[in-house]
Amino acid sequence: MEPLNSDYEVVARASHPRARFNWLYIFPVLGGLWLLYLLAAAVFQFSISDVIDPIMSFMLVLFFVLAGLLFWALAPKANR
């Protein structure tokens, strides 16, 4: 019997460090969707008062998510 090969190779993903910034594209997309919703409310005159409080809470959460994603995206540059 042959001995098992127990040498593990660590395979790191060789992606570009700037590829981490691609996650930040979600914020302009969400902003555009919010603007489309506000435009539809202005054109078709429907009430958005029930939506304002949850959206403002969601935007507050997204602010902290944005800060965390920025720290995560800028992390590869920290070892320079």
Results as ranks from 00 to 15, higher is better:
Met1Tyr: 06
Pro3Phe: 10
Leu4Met: 11
Asn5Thr: 05
Ser6Pro: 05
Ser6Cys: 15
Tyr8Arg: 13
Val10Met: 06
Val10Asn: 00
Val11Cys: 08
Ala12Ile: 13
Ala12His: 10
Arg13Tyr: 00
Ala14His: 03
Ala14Gln: 11
Ser15Met: 08
Arg18Asn: 12
Ala19Leu: 14
Ala19Glu: 15
Arg20Ile: 00
Phe21Ser: 02
Asn22Trp: 13
Trp23Asp: 04
Ile26Gly: 09
Ile26Glu: 09
Pro28Ser: 11
Pro28His: 14
Val29Pro: 03
Trp34Val: 01
Leu35Val: 15
Leu35Cys: 14
Leu38Asp: 12
Leu39Arg: 13
Ala40Leu: 12
Ala40Met: 10
Ala40Trp: 10
Ala42Cys: 12
Val43Ile: 13
Val43Lys: 11
Phe44Asn: 10
Gln45Asn: 11
Phe46Gln: 01
Ser47Gln: 08
Ile48Ser: 06
Asp50Gln: 13
Asp50Pro: 01
Asp50Arg: 03
Asp53Ile: 08
Pro54Leu: 06
Phe58Ser: 06
Phe58Glu: 02
Met59Leu: 12
Leu60Ile: 12
Leu60Thr: 12
Phe63Pro: 00
Phe64Gln: 05
Val65Pro: 01
Val65Trp: 01
Leu66Trp: 11
Leu66Thr: 08
Ala67Gly: 05
Leu70Pro: 05
Phe71Ile: 14
Trp72Cys: 04
Ala73Pro: 00
Ala75Pro: 06
Asn79Lys: 15
Arg80Glu: 14
